[in-house]
Simulated assay, not measured.
Amino acid sequence: MRAFYSDHFVLPLPEGHRFPMGKYALLRDRVASELPEVRLCPAPAASDGELALAHEPVYVSAVAEGWLTQAQQREIGFPWSARMAERARRSVGATIAAARAALEDGVAATLAGGTHHAYADKGSGYCVFNDVAVAARLMQAEWHRRRRALLRVAVVDLDVHQGNGTAAIFRDDPTVFTLSMHGARNFPFRKEVSDLDLELPDGCEDEPYLDALDGALNQLWHRHEGRPPGLIFYLAGADPYRGDRLGRLRLSVDGLAERDRRVFAAAHARGIPVVVTMAGGYGRVIEETVEIQRRTLSLATGFQQQWNNRSSHVPTPA
């Protein structure tokens, strides 16, 4: 399985900043030492044209050239720097590359990504560009150019925070189905409307969470009867974990692994390729976040082994 990384672009954050920048390099080290079946690949940078598939060109220029206002930088949560802009490009580039690889191999991953709070015209919540939105639109364009067919996309967002930027970008797009399962009282406090939103109470534990996930996936398949998605973007946030500083839910490490297993099993049963993004994770103990994400990637490699055993790989979307 191919996995793309960009952790060598580290932002010069102020002392005491709560974003866990170090988790990306730690995760890559764990994958390199413990998951030999994962081929680590450096992320390319997304171009201005690719970013403009989901973002306003003036916003892309503001990030690239340093025009962001102080208010815009505060909403993003990062001060502007050339490295910040380049890291944002590489994060999108990693998801683009993973999406292409998933369509070839059945599954691929980025060791970052899932920047679902970014809107077409602004960033928010540590998200500069919306990597999934850009990659989804680019995959649809490339699929149509090669096959003269429509690629339907599903976004399965299981980060603890609602994917508000993704929901807004695809609000009027029937070719992309957005599913977000998140904490009802968590950021963002003004939610957007996804195609399917499931709000969970503070303190939600493994059993009710997994029951809600089963119901959400059943609704996803029911709404696509006869027109299944040809690609899933899975935001496998580690932040529903009970030890997360920003999560407010109470899932165990094993519960999160079972969540991942159910998503992969549902995709495998329907022959749908999956792009895995790590999304959020703000554990009080950073090593616990990294372990949750390592397990997600380990389960993804099992999905690929099952995929390789299929008699036919990529389905032809309706």
Results as ranks from 00 to 15, higher is better:
Lys191Asp: 02
Pro317Gly: 00
Thr69Ala: 04
Ala112Lys: 13
Arg171Ala: 04
Trp307Asp: 14
Ala98Val: 03
Leu299Val: 04
Phe187His: 02
Arg310Tyr: 14
Thr289Ala: 05
Arg245Glu: 11
Gly183Asn: 10
Ser312Thr: 14
Ser252Ala: 06
Ile76His: 04
Ala168Trp: 10
Gln304Tyr: 07
Trp307Ser: 10
His117Lys: 00
Pro79Ala: 05
Ala269Asp: 15
Ser33Trp: 06
Ile292Tyr: 04
Val63Asn: 06
Arg284Cys: 09
Pro228Phe: 07
Tyr126His: 00
Met181Gln: 10
Arg171Phe: 13
Asp197His: 10
Ser194Thr: 02
Met84Val: 07
Leu158Thr: 12
Gln72Tyr: 09
His17Thr: 07
Gln140Glu: 11
Arg261Tyr: 12
Val193Glu: 08
Pro174Val: 08
Leu111Phe: 09
Glu15Thr: 14
Pro174Ile: 02
Ala62Gln: 11
Ala71Gln: 03
Leu111Thr: 07
Leu151Arg: 06
Ala269Glu: 14
Ala32Arg: 15
Leu35Gln: 12
Val155Arg: 00
Gly283Asn: 09
Ala85Glu: 01
His313Pro: 13
Ala318Cys: 12
Ala97Asn: 03
Val276Met: 11
Ala141Pro: 10
Glu288Ser: 05
His222Asn: 12
Pro240His: 08
Ala279Val: 01
Gly106Asp: 12
Tyr126Leu: 02
Ala135Thr: 10
Pro14Cys: 06
Glu15Asn: 11
Leu198Ala: 14
Tyr234Arg: 01
Val160Lys: 06
Met84Gly: 01
Gly255Lys: 03
Tyr282Lys: 07
Ala167His: 07
Ala149Met: 12
Leu251Ala: 02
Trp67Glu: 02
Arg90Ala: 14
Asn308Asp: 15
Ala279Gln: 05
Leu179Asn: 10
Arg261Phe: 06
Ala120Asp: 08
Val92Thr: 11
Arg185Met: 11
Arg89Ala: 01
Asp159Met: 01
Glu15Ala: 03
Ala279Ser: 05
Asp206His: 12
Ser81Val: 13
Gln306Phe: 12
Arg171Trp: 04
Phe170Arg: 05
Ala98Ile: 04
Gly255Ser: 13
Val92Ala: 06
Leu151Tyr: 06
His313Asn: 13
Ile169Gly: 13
Gly113Thr: 13
Ile292Pro: 05
Leu179Ile: 00
Phe129His: 14
His144Glu: 11
Gln305Cys: 13
Met21Ser: 14
Glu207Ala: 15
Pro14Ile: 07
Gln72Thr: 06
Thr178Asn: 08
Gln70Phe: 09
Ser124Arg: 15
Ala98Gly: 03
Gly243Phe: 10
Val31Gln: 09
Asn218Phe: 06
Val275Asn: 07
Leu158Tyr: 03
Ile232Val: 15
Arg284Val: 08
Leu256Ser: 02
Leu150Ile: 02
Lys23Trp: 10
His161Gln: 00
Gln306Gly: 15
Arg185Pro: 01
Thr115Tyr: 14
Gly203Ile: 04
Ala236Ser: 14
Gly49Trp: 09
His268Pro: 05
Val263Gln: 07
Thr296His: 13
Phe303Gly: 08
Cys127Gln: 08
Arg18Tyr: 14
Asp211Gly: 03
Ala101Asp: 03
Met181Tyr: 08
Arg89Asn: 01
Phe9Asp: 06
Arg89Glu: 04
